[in-house]
Amino acid sequence: MIAQQHLLQMLGDGEVHSGSELAATLGVSRAAVWKQLNALRALGLKVNGEAGQGYRLDQPYEALDKATIQGALTASAGGVLHSLRTLWECDSTNNVLLDALYSEPLSPGIASVCLAELQTGGRGRRGRHWVSPPGSGVWCSVSWTWDAPPSDLSALSLAAGAHVLRALQKRGCQGLQLKWPNDLLANGRKIGGILIDVHGDLAGPISVVVGLGLNLIVSEATRNQVKADGGQPPIGLYELGFTESRNLVAADLVSALVDLLRNYADTGFSRDKSFWCAHDFLRNKPVVVSGSSALSGVAMGVNELGYLRVVAENGEQLVGAGDVSLRLNPQEPAR
């Protein structure tokens, strides 16, 4: 695993490297290099070249750097940072922080952060697999504990989306929207998602782990895999002409999430609601909600608790669970 990480770092400069050069630097045989290159390809990375011609990574790769990320956090986020870990591989960054919570509860008012190059078990809603090859995105989680849960904890999911979107906008990224509850879209295509684990007693203390996956580059293999899983084809930040350093993007996102959690007990969702609604992808569109009872109607924004307002035939319904999708044919009767 370490050899793989090392190899990717060497190829990260975008130059052509010969097999013998790579083998000599890593201190392994050329056959071992060849094997590791194929392993990188299997992870969804595009490595051009054959034995004898040299190898070149067909996409930029900037390794996660703990010191750079930590140094670029906002002062307010850095001030409450308990720990920040950068891993090569894990099943999911949320699980790493959850396991840490199980073994030792996190004191209220401080944040633990985990970032990884490679997630082998990234989770999405309804068991969807969240695909994350190394270097092609930012996969990070932040954990936080409150003595007593914030009154509008349910809307944390939406507030997190709003804060991430705002952080990206500040870096000059345009055309971003949110799809209820918190999918991040760029030009209508998914660029990221957020999943929150809630651990503890609703009477308090209660801990959350907010996990964010943001695409920088979506490989053809990943695109096909997501399509095959029935998901919409995703897009990456770098495919939108965005060129910011991966570590600085990571620092921005971690800061946004830590600052959100730091203030959420006081501010709740109320301060973000109008911003959220101004970037609402589903607004005024016909939607179908799956869940205990299927519902068809027109999405009309969200309320203070983050519930989606859907105007159906029998009036307005508030949706707090289930999957929401666009109804492609508005004439189609409600299922």
Partner: peptide, 11 residues
């Protein structure tokens, strides 16, 4: 119990 992409652990 998942609601709004919040995975609430039930103990």
């Amino acid at each position: 119990i998942e609601a709004m992409k919040m995975m609430n652990q039930i103990e």
